[in-house]
């Protein structure tokens, strides 16, 4: 009967009906799919019923790929949501993109690891209550046979050696750069600068030895592994990838390899005070002793060592603030 009904209609009407049905599916679907119910680590047997429904306010956290890919934020998310009854939405972007989103007022919190870019962001008046909450170290990884012979060198000296041998045309000497303006890429540029080079004129496009990937950390590591190249990586991503790579850590020491993670309350134009207050709650949550301990434990089970070292209130040497409770709701013009 239904079929006969349809066949008497014009083709255009059929198409219209299809569209209508699709729309109806969507609307009914919306009520059954509860947004905000994550659960990567939750096995099927303990799903949905135990998850609290997300009703309250939505808070958007923009973060960088290398931090997000470690899984730390997904691990902390339910703890924060439970405590404050908010829906924390986490989007991971390249550092440049995350900062741009924040400047436009499209997110409420930033969690990043690029001090120079963060300072410029703060100076622009886009953020308040910047607090460092954890750190770890970048490492230089490369083939186990260490073709450039840099094992044990200081990072700057190692970079000079790779560049020297690479430019001289030694076969098998490659360095893969993220080449994407990420926090890791900024750290790499800092090392070139400290090693005495002008990055744009002396390093970039200076020969086949220097490869700019333009990719995330994981893909860059895979590329380096395929090429038998050296690269700079955060330790967390390397540990997560280790089993798939023919790369070993060759340089793990040097102050310049320090990688400090900070959280910032975004202060965009016309941002409601409730959002700012809730973002401040997240800042305070991250620097609270209980969560600091959890950050320190994170990854120990899986990788045999923690991926992050919490500040635990001791951040004097990093020239950042990790103790003052975040309470400001607007920029202090007199404060720099």
């Amino acid at each position: 009967m239904n079929m006969h009904f349809l066949s008497t209609l014009h083709g255009g009407t059929v198409i219209f009906l299809v569209a209508l049905v699709l729309g109806a599916i969507l609307i009914s679907g919306c009520t059954t799919t509860n947004p905000g119910q994550g659960g990567a680590q939750i096995p099927p047997t303990t799903q949905s019923p135990s998850l609290p429904p997300h009703k309250g306010q939505k808070l958007i956290l923009a973060t960088t790929t290398s931090l997000y890919d470690t899984g730390l934020l997904d691990y902390l998310e339910p703890l924060f949501e439970e405590k404050y009854g908010v829906d924390l939405l986490i989007t991971s972007q390249g550092t440049g993109k995350a900062l741009e989103i924040a400047k436009r007022g499209d997110c409420d919190i930033l969690a990043v690891h690029s001090p120079d870019q963060e300072k410029a962001f703060m100076d622009g008046g886009y953020g308040i209550n910047r607090r460092c909450f954890a750190y770890n170290y970048f490492i230089v990884v490369g083939p186990a046979d260490d073709p450039a012979g840099i094992r044990g060198m200081a990072p700057q000296e190692a970079f000079r050696t790779i560049l020297g041998k690479g430019k001289a045309g030694n076969p098998g000497i490659f360095f893969v750069s993220r080449g994407d303006n990420s926090g890791t890429h900024s750290a790499e540029k800092n090392i070139w600068k400290a090693a005495g080079y002008n990055y744009t004129s002396e390093v970039q496009r200076s020969g086949a030895w220097y490869i700019e990937a333009g990719k995330g950390m994981g893909e860059t590591l895979q590329l380096a592994s395929e090429k038998g190249a050296y690269t700079l990586t955060d330790e967390g991503t390397y540990l997560a990838y280790r089993g798939k790579l023919n790369l070993v850590p060759v340089i793990e020491e040097g102050d310049i390899l320090l990688n400090v993670y900070s959280v910032i309350t975004v202060h965009a134009k016309n941002q409601p005070v409730e959002k700012i207050t809730m973002a401040n709650n997240f800042v305070n949550f991250l620097i609270s002793p209980g969560i600091q301990a959890k950050i320190g434990e994170y990854g120990k089970e899986k990788y045999g060592k923690g991926l992050f070292i919490p500040m635990n209130g001791g951040c004097m040497r990093f020239e950042c603030d990790c103790t003052t409770p975040a309470s400001e709701t607007g920029p202090l013009t007199s404060f720099k």
Binding site: P35, G36, G39, A40, I60, D74, D87, L89, T91
Partner: peptide
């Protein structure tokens, strides 16, 4: 969408 888990 921003690839937000459980949302987008």
């Amino acid at each position: 969408g921003g690839n937000i888990r459980g949302y987008t």
